[in-house]
């Protein structure tokens, strides 16, 4: 750990609680999603039951991690706390947000309950503000079929600008395809063009656009200038500090 001064996990103290050593994996995958959508089942599907899972007595957080190999690459997968949103201030959301923002995972895999698509997309769209590299797993697809509801995954994928893969975590249906997409996005084979919400109330949209331009000027390498601008407007003092003391700049050089 000590020789890894520049590896993402060391950049912010916020991540120290994770105590990761990520250098032994080729790609880091963050696993996000609403509570109760089958995230842990997906984790088990991906890593097999042999991986090291367990409850970690953290503050409010139970966390698991695992690893899997695909096409000669080693993937490390970090299970983030289940949250409805990333905009609020609960401890769980902060951890999930900080990891996606500062931990810079190579792919963020968002598990979605297909039967509650709308509410789940709320989280997906928020994640797309922070990071480009996202794969959406449309879990519980069998429930949709049972209810005779049709979901056009290709159309969804096109609208979101990232892969959206129907899966049934319980029976491992679609898991192979999911892994392949994770690999494609991680290795850069699939280039994501994430959807960014453009229609906020007039005054707010103007403020966001104005600040985004300024942030971009100051930090040209930042992939998520708009998110930073939104956090500033939200009064996120952690981001303010990261800008002031240069940590944000260092992170995305």
């Amino acid at each position: 750990m000590a020789d890894c001064v520049n590896c993402p996990a060391n950049v912010l103290s916020a991540l120290k609680r994770y105590g990761e050593n990520m250098q032994d994996a080729d790609f880091v995958v963050a696993l996000a999603g609403n509570p109760n959508v089958g995230k842990s089942t997906i984790l088990n599907d991906l890593t097999g039951l042999k991986q090291h899972t367990g409850n970690w007595p953290g503050k409010t957080v139970t966390r698991a991690e695992g690893a899997f190999g695909y096409k000669e690459k080693k993937f490390k997968i970090i299970d983030l706390p289940g949250t409805y949103s990333l905009l609020s201030t609960s401890a769980d959301e902060e951890i999930a947000r900080d990891f996606i923002l500062f931990g810079k995972p190579d792919v963020t895999l968002v598990v979605v309950d297909s039967t509650k698509l709308e509410r789940n997309l709320n989280l997906v769209l928020q994640i797309l503000e922070i990071t480009d590299k996202v794969v959406v797993a449309l879990n519980l697809f069998d429930e949709l079929r049972r209810k005779n509801i049709k979901l056009d995954a290709r159309r969804l994928s096109a609208d979101l600008g990232v892969p959206a893969v129907p899966v049934v975590a319980r029976s491992k249906e679609g898991i192979n395809e999911l892994i392949d997409y994770v690999w494609q996005v991680a290795s850069g084979e699939y280039v994501c063009k994430p959807k960014r919400v453009k229609k906020f109330n007039g005054k707010i949209q103007k403020a966001i656009d104005d600040l985004t331009a300024d942030v971009k000027k100051l930090f040209p390498n930042l992939p998520n200038a708009r998110w930073i601008a939104m956090r500033l407007l939200e009064g996120d003092m952690q981001i303010e500090e990261a800008i002031k003391n240069g940590e944000l700049g260092k992170l995305f050089q």
């Binding site: 949103s85 201030t89 709308e118 509410r119």
Partner: peptide, 11 residues
């Protein structure tokens, strides 16, 4: 606060 944000998050 928390109560409002939670309701918003739930849609």
């Amino acid at each position: 606060g928390v109560a409002r944000r939670r309701l918003l998050d739930l849609g």
